[in-house]
């Protein structure tokens, strides 16, 4: 059996009270409860405070460039579908720099889990607005207030992402459960995590979230397979903020549609001199 100690990583360098701690606990808890051994896990992360998470747990790590987590995660998954691939980044990383990759990874439905630590602010560069900063959020680069925020959940539903969820870093139990469902989901599982930044975001604090979040699974008549309902739910922000599975739809993954993978993972197919004699003959 896998234990929490198997996922003990290196010394942490996040600010005390950071929302990232809750997310790290939830990730480790999900992996342990699913009894997944660390060597089977590949975490691909971006740049930002969120990008450091893989170093603080224990697994295979590909710490990427800012915004480029998803293409590398997709490439690694195609190379070896036996890996459990979890991409990790922040809101600037995923929704700003990596926005185009985000859209197309969802469209293709790679079988990976994508966690976005969404604290609505740039932490590593010290407090500038992010694509999800609330309207009017004043920072040193947005002195007259931030412009309209991106709605990542609505965007994901529009792209027909096969799993769209939202968690809260202040509710580890719920978040761990959501991550477990994301990992076991066949296809692209996108989880936006509400993450308080105790240094640079004095608006969206733990208390601000606690007063607003409610769990969708406690709503008896909410059906996450209803796309129109999910789209409406994704618009809720302000007084009421839903967490849980917003949208879910089973559709073929990118990897299972690749004939080359029928013979097993590419990485296990021996690299040998290609049998190209027949191809050469085609040029005669």
């Amino acid at each position: 059996m896998v234990a929490m100690t198997d996922y003990a990583g290196s010394k942490l360098a996040w600010c005390p009270g950071c929302g990232n701690f809750g997310i790290l606990s939830a990730v480790n808890k999900a992996l342990v409860e699913l009894n997944i051994e660390p060597h089977r896990v590949l975490m691909v992360s971006g740049i930002g405070q969120a990008g450091k998470l893989p170093h603080y747990t224990r697994c295979n790590i590909l710490n990427m460039l800012h915004g480029r987590t998803l293409p590398a995660a997709a490439g690694a998954k195609i190379a070896n579908p036996e890996l459990i691939v979890i991409a990790v980044g922040g809101d600037g990383d995923g929704y700003g720099e990596g926005g185009n990759h985000f859209i197309h990874a969802m469209r293709r439905n790679h079988d990976i889990t994508y966690l976005v630590h969404n604290n609505q602010v740039y932490g590593l560069t010290k407090g500038q607005a992010s694509p999800t900063s609330d309207l009017g959020f004043v920072t040193k680069t947005t002195l007259r207030g931030a412009t309209m925020p991106l709605n990542p959940l609505a965007l994901a539903i529009a792209c027909d992402a096969s799993f769209v969820g939202r968690g809260f870093a202040g509710d580890v139990e719920h978040l761990a459960n959501l991550i477990k469902m994301g990992i076991t989901h066949k296809g692209f599982a996108f989880i936006d995590v509400l993450q308080p930044c105790v240094i640079f975001n004095r608006k969206n604090t733990y208390n601000w979230y606690r007063e607003r979040v409610y769990k969708l699974e406690e709503e008896t008549n909410y059906d996450p397979s209803n796309k129109a309902a999910a789209f409406n739910k994704a618009q809720e922000w302000g007084e009421q903020i839903p967490i849980g599975i917003i949208y879910r739809k089973q559709r073929p993954t990118f990897e299972e549609q690749l004939p080359a993978l029928d013979k097993g993972p590419l990485v296990k197919q021996k690299i040998e001199i290609g049998r190209i004699e027949e191809l050469l003959d085609e040029f005669l």
Partner: peptide, 29 residues
């Protein structure tokens, strides 16, 4: 691709293309 067990992926842009092959190269392919 089908006959020679290759995966060919038309990516959303060149930035994705190089990062995809970095992911695959890291994974051993």
């Amino acid at each position: 691709a089908k006959d020679f067990d290759l995966v060919v992926l038309q990516s959303e842009d060149e930035i994705a293309a190089i990062n995809m092959i970095i992911g695959a190269g890291y994974a051993g392919v």
